[in-house]
Design a protein around this nucleic acid. Structure first.
Length: 722
RNA sequence: GGGCGAUUAGCUCAGUUGGCUAGAGCGUCCGCCUUACAAGCGGAAGGUCGUUGGUUCGAGCCCAACAUCGCCCACCA
């Protein structure tokens, strides 16, 4: 009998939880438990980009789960030893920012806590989130191996990160040095170049009398300590001045002695061709200062307030001080003119949009050039291939212009940097075992532990080989290099390229062979989803309303690699209809089989089966080429408009005829075709297809779970790009 | 300032190496509760594929220029 459950219509929420439990209980998410055909198969591995353990999943997560699950499930059915490893990311700075907002709502501040207290609280916070997140990943159907789950703060992860840090020092690729860093005065930490953004601003530009010169600046508040003026050596206007020439200047807080410096950095085309420099608060100025051995002084502190050098303005925030300073300049007769329409871009913190205040800080830097060179090489040689050619170009361009990487962060939430700093000479020493007691450079015993933590991307950049248990685990030997890295294109530089660089550095092999970058999930009009716009589509909510499979189809059909996807709830609704259609098709076919029994498929119908097999080959090839958007759309079209509308309708006369042989023959054809279609559709709509599969009697199918049934095409899944 | 991408039906988008009357979802119009499915079935309207030129037997697809929009990168005082 066709089961009670086969009542109409298809009810996804009723089925999904039970189905997932059945899969999980079967143990087949873990490739070690797969049957013979898979165990002897080639390995196929995807490392899941670990979601940040600081919130719930959004549409972008649902997209990556869908894409990676499609590939994993296809590989598994194809007989590969398929492994997809889940994880969670402590996401250093990001998470601390989230937690600081929570603190602030409670009227608290991290600056009134010890690092240990803060760490402990955020730890509990992330562990709670992590559990929630795992449940959400499961509800999206992720067929990943939970027994191999990792957190980026697990002891073995930290251990490998430490080893990498030490190796970098040994190889001379690590240095600690006083450099101009991007400092966020609100979060009071330095940030890498990737963590700042630029905002176009129109602000007043002030021309100020500086001794015999006129200088231009948008930031008069930094000028208190400016003792050097710089002109280009070839600037004819200033050929009567000598390099290093001293002269008196009536400055904001009284007379000072200034020095003229001739340096190529001076731009004769710009304004008067004269600038003063503020090395402590400008990277360019710092470089000039270093070239000529100039002194420098801090003007603004870590919280963005002026220091005593600013005299009466000391203690004021920049915004407050600037107009007052301008006022004083006027009174002193130093202000020459103001250009109100000066356009420039201002660096801001990518999280809080606070203006970045460059500061001189001693930090750990990694020399990136040598790492980038090797990465360029493997990309050019095709050892790492990009599904989207445009990203390959963007990647190479970035690698060619790479800067050294500041990996020190002044935050509590993260992996402590295992190093000692000499308080006398500033020398930094990597110290994994906490055994260094004397400065290796100056011999001083006045040393302390580095208080900073690693940039979170330094540790996550090592994720693939760490997850697989480098260096001597079986998993590492089996699955590394992994097959596909699938993630958002927004973290190409942050994460993907750093994984290639650090993976190559530690293991000599690329961490993955293919990079599939998806775009941003936007709302139906192409706007970014945001709480303030009220246009957020919560994947968990819609999967409850329409079914996870409908959401997955909506995310994959028409979503070309690398491009943003505009997601319309109506589109999800359309695929809920499709799920119901497949459900009804299955009911019809199974009723026919029940009524007429199985028989011989006649010669003419064999041809139909062959055509379906060719179709299966085509789908397999599409998946191989990462054309999941095509595969999914073709399946939709074939099942509905070829199978249901034509083949099934045209078989009705035979099924209703008195010729029993004819009827059972047709019913058998339909059953065979149904099974093939369900299998092809399974990676895309796993819950629906498994639900139906469970309705097919055991003696009519090759496996009790469609999840591990045999893929209906002999074409082997082998990724290749045009 | 440098780089990348987009422009196809009212809306949101596909169109795989150039090849039969250019497709999907939603929306619109007409007719159907036909015994798998009204979350359905049958049918219809709707596109000079941004503009201009070129290559080709043949161009939505390749090339050039232009226009519009978007994204990324970048220490200009």
């Amino acid at each position: 009998m066709v089961s009670e459950k086969f009542t109409k219509p298809y009810n996804p929420t009723e089925n999904e939880q039970g189905i997932y439990k059945m899969w999980e209980d079967s143990g087949f998410f873990n490739p070690d438990n797969l049957k013979e055909k898979n165990k002897d198969g080639d390995p196929y591995c995807i490392i899941m980009p670990p979601p940040n353990a600081n919130g719930s999943l959004h549409a972008g997560h649902a997209l990556f789960v869908t894409l990676q699950d499609i590939l994993t499930r296809t590989a598994r059915m194809q007989g590969f030893k398929a492994l997809w490893t889940p994880g969670a990311d402590h996401a250093g700075f990001e998470t601390q920012v989230v937690y600081e907002k929570i603190l602030s709502k409670q009227g608290r501040s991290r600056f009134k806590m010890t690092d240990e207290e803060l760490f402990k609280e955020i730890w509990d916070f992330t562990q709670e989130n992590k559990k929630y997140m795992e449940a959400q990943l499961k509800s999206l159907g992720a067929s990943c191996d939970w027994s191999r789950e990792k957190f980026t703060l697990d002891p073995d992860v930290v251990e490998q990160v430490y080893q990498t840090f030490k190796k970098l020092e040994e190889d001379g690729l690590l240095y600690r040095g006083l450099r101009s860093v991007n400092w966020c005065p609100k979060h009071r930490t330095s940030l890498s170049n990737l963590e700042i953004e630029y905002e176009e601003r129109t602000e007043p530009f002030y021309y100020i009398k500086y001794g015999p010169f006129v200088i231009g600046t948008a930031r008069p508040e930094t000028k208190f300590g400016d003792k050097y003026v710089v002109v280009h050596p070839d600037d004819e206007r200033y050929k009567n001045y000598e390099h290093d020439q001293k002269f008196e200047v009536d400055w904001i807080n009284g007379k000072i002695t200034a020095t003229l410096i001739k340096d190529e950095a001076g731009d004769p085309e710009l304004g008067t061709g004269v600038m003063t420099i503020t090395p402590w608060h400008s990277g360019v100025d710092f470089e000039i200062a270093q070239r000529h051995n100039l002194t420098y002084e801090q003007i603004i502190d870590e919280t963005g307030r002026l220091l005593p050098v600013a005299g009466e303005f000391a203690g004021m925030k920049i915004k407050e001080a600037r107009p007052k300073i301008v006022e004083k300049l006027k009174e002193l007769g130093l202000l020459v003119k103001i250009d109100e329409n000066y356009k420039h871009s201002v660096p801001v913190c990518y999280k809080c949009k606070t203006e970045i205040e460059p500061q001189l800080k001693s930090q750990w830097f990694i020399k990136m050039k040598p790492l980038a060179e090797k990465t360029k090489e493997v990309i050019e040689k095709g050892k790492v291939k990009f599904v989207t050619e445009k990203h390959k170009r963007v990647a190479l361009h970035w690698l060619e212009n790479i800067k050294d990487w500041n990996i020190s962060r002044q935050i509590a939430w993260g992996i402590k940097i295992p190093a000692k700093i000499c308080k006398d000479c500033g020398h930094g020493m990597v110290d994994l075992e906490d055994e260094i007691k004397v400065c290796k450079k100056c011999g001083s015993k006045n040393i302390e532990k580095d208080k900073d933590t690693f940039d979170t991307w330094f540790s996550s950049g090592q994720w693939p080989f760490v997850v697989l248990g480098y260096p001597d685990s079986e998993d590492f030997k089996n699955y590394y290099p992994t097959d596909v890295m699938e993630t958002g294109h927004d973290i190409l530089f942050f994460w993907v390229l750093r994984m290639v660089m650090l993976g190559l550095y530690r293991t000599d092999y690329v961490p993955f062979k293919y990079v599939y970058l998806h775009g941003l999930v936007r709302d139906k009009h192409g706007r970014k989803m945001s709480k303030s716009k009220g246009n957020v589509i919560n994947p968990i909510d819609v999967s409850k309303e329409f079914g996870t499979d409908a959401l997955r189809m909506a995310l994959v059909v028409g979503n070309t690699p690398g491009n943003d996807l505009n997601l319309d709830v109506a589109k999800i609704g359309a695929y809920r209809k499709f799920a119901n259609k497949v459900w009804n098709i299955a009911r019809f076919v199974l009723i026919q089989i029940e009524q007429h029994g199985q028989g011989e498929i006649n010669e003419n119908d064999q041809k139909t089966l062959v055509k379906l097999t060719e179709f299966a080959d085509e789908i397999t090839e599409d998946i191989s080429k990462f054309n999941l958007h095509l595969a999914s759309e073709k399946l939709y079209h074939y099942i509905w408009h070829t199978f249901a509308d034509k083949i099934l309708e045209e078989s009705k006369p035979d099924l209703q005829s008195d010729n029993k042989e004819l009827a059972s023959s047709k019913a058998t054809l339909l059953l065979e075709m149904l099974k093939i279609q369900l299998k092809l559709l399974h990676p895309f709509m796993p819950f629906l297809t498994e639900s139906i599969w469970q309705e097919i009697p055991d003696d009519m199918k090759d496996e009790k779970l469609i999840m591990i049934s045999r893929w209906p095409s002999n074409i082997k899944l082998k990724h290749e790009l045009a």
